[in-house]
């Protein structure tokens, strides 16, 4: 009895392990490598980071990152190492320091500066415009009518 039952059960356990198949997953090291690699530029490519690039140098740089992660270096240490070898160029974005603040702040300065100027200008136009109301444009009247009809029906 025992034997009859045991054979199929054993088979069930044996089959999956027969091919040594396993569930593979990323390790913490893999994740950290990715996180760092995404912030470093592949120097022989264009605006592409070493994580996404297929270039051999990018591959070697990833390996260099991995080695350092395994050695227990921190993200900042690893980034600093690459920075010491390749300069600002290897960072995917300009470091926030010195003249680079120009590019980081320019969009917002333009937006607020331009906004303030535009606001003042429009305000000037509004005050200079005589309060006499010319008849509203054609499609506006039809819009009004539609709105009125809507309201009437409610």
């Amino acid at each position: 009895m025992f034997r009859l039952f045991s054979i199929p059960i054993l088979l069930c356990f044996v089959i999956p392990t027969a091919g040594l198949a396993e569930v593979v997953d990323e390790t913490e090291i893999d994740q950290k490598v990715r996180e760092i690699a995404k912030t470093l530029r592949c120097t022989v490519c264009q605006t592409e980071n070493i994580w996404e690039s297929g270039a051999p140098l990018a591959h070697q740089m990833r390996e260099a990152v991995r080695e350092r992660v395994i050695q227990g270096q921190s993200t900042e240490e690893i980034r600093a190492y690459f920075h010491s070898r390749y300069g600002d160029y290897i960072m995917m974005e300009p470091p926030k320091q010195g003249v680079n603040w120009l590019i980081w702040l320019a969009p917002f300065l333009l937006l607020f500066g331009g906004g303030a100027l535009l606001w003042r200008e429009v305000k000037g136009w509004v005050t200079r415009t005589p309060p006499s109301q010319p008849p509203p444009a054609l499609d506006e009247t039809s819009r009004r009518r539609i709105e009125r009809e809507l309201n009437d029906n409610q």
Binding site: V44, L57, Y86
Partner: peptide, 13 residues
């Protein structure tokens, strides 16, 4: 072979 020296020297080509 692994390009580690090249990276150490900041080589890109």
């Amino acid at each position: 072979v692994k390009g580690a020296l090249a990276i150490d020297f900041g080589v890109y080509g």
